[in-house]
Nucleic acid binder design. Structure first.
Lengths: 232, 232
DNA sequence: ACCTGAACACCGTTCAAGT
DNA sequence: ACCTGAACACCGTTCAAGT
């Protein structure tokens, strides 16, 4: 019976939701979120645009699904390791996911229907902090400052016009030589720092972890104080 | 001679670049960046879409100009006040500008042609830190961590589905009652924190300044250490 | 049950014309 | 010098049809 029903179009495996989402993530990774249209996605899948609407209600739901794929790539905090190293590992993992999927920066928290991986992640984060003795209020504070830093760093990383330390030098040099000669007079401090950056390079990972440790130190140092109000 | 040249259309003042940019910022503030199209902008100005292209080369240059208007609203750091209060005031001012112009979050650093207000701002920031004795390298570190925090906080503020402490409660309540009953079992820690947030409210300004002071403390405490390498 | 084709109401931008 | 109108190559999405 099975073979009597299979038609000549058995070439391409039947479309399903996961295949649609995976293809969409691939396109967005390669060409940016603007390069992802229902039409380019359909082309990639070897299908007509309207075929996608059988698996996803529209572009919004498509993006909801893509964002939850990124959330699923973020390591869950392991509370048994202690809150500090759990929070550190989670932040590092999240920055990694966001630099692999730059289109996702700015979308991670903005979806009205948070997906299961998103909920699981936040639940684990709250759980780790609460079990480590943070009050409700301080759990919110810690989440807020760490997430802001991770999102903001990822945003800068997405947004700055170089990817590697070597490229940072090239871009700085190019900018220096492109600017009108007046720039060095009008913005002397800026030029000085740009020239120095060019000389010594810029490593995103080193920079990220330096700031992260500074913030974790701040949380740790303030903790006894915050613990005073632990009942609340 | 002047009046012989003035035609019947003297009703609307002649279009110019500043008027175009100001109108565009207004539309983006009210309706979001998606609500700003060359066509809605033309309507607002009482003009046909193509008229705009005489004052701006296209949508990219339009947005470049809009972003620099936001930069111009950010208070320049006042080095005479000491680096810490200068950095604090600048960060608070920048968050203010970004919450008045939420469409600008994510665009502040992404323009290939930084405008004059942007360059002035960064020059003043570098100047304040360098004059306060920070090494080149540490000037970069401080800028990186502070900007990441401000951008990331603004991103969360733009992105979270409530604006005020009261609304945060309403949203939390609605989310709680909308979720399938299993949510409380699947995500107990998350639900607990959400319920607590609902009870006590959430104030963006308080939250922002708490994290900001934590980071400034971290910078201050690490400073002597960093100063050791001040020559470099 | 799943896919298709044509159409609609939008975009940003070009080009040739108007005054 | 500045503005206009029509057109082009794109969007996301609806609807009626095909198999």
């Amino acid at each position: 019976m099975a073979y009597t029903l299979s038609s000549g179009s058995a070439r391409r495996p039947r479309l399903n939701r996961d295949a649609v989402l995976a293809a969409a993530v691939g396109i967005a990774d390669r060409t940016g979120i603007d390069g992802l249209t229902m039409r380019t996605l359909a082309d990639e899948l070897g299908v007509v645009p309207m075929a996608i609407y059988k698996h996803v209600s529209g572009k919004d739901e498509l993006i909801d699904g893509m964002v939850d794929i990124v959330w699923a790539e973020v390591e869950l905090p392991d509370a048994t390791a202690g809150w500090r190293s759990a929070m550190r590992a989670r932040a590092v993992s999240m920055r990694g996911a966001l630099s692999r999927h730059r289109w996702a920066v700015g979308l991670m928290e903005s979806r009205m229907q948070p997906g299961p991986a998103n909920l699981r992640q936040h639940n684990a984060m709250m759980g780790c902090l609460r079990e480590s003795g943070f009050s409700f209020r301080n759990t919110v504070h810690v989440t807020s400052v760490l997430d802001a830093y991770v999102y903001g760093f990822a945003l800068q990383e997405k947004t700055l016009p170089f990817d590697t330390a070597e490229e940072s030098g090239q871009v700085a040099e190019q900018k220096r030589s492109t600017q009108p000669e007046t720039a060095a007079q009008d913005y002397p401090y800026l030029m000085e720092v740009v020239v120095e950056l060019m000389r010594s390079g810029y490593d995103y990972t080193v920079e990220f972890e330096l700031g992260l440790d500074l913030i974790l130190d701040g949380i740790e140092r303030l903790r006894p104080e915050w613990a005073d109000e632990a009942g609340r």
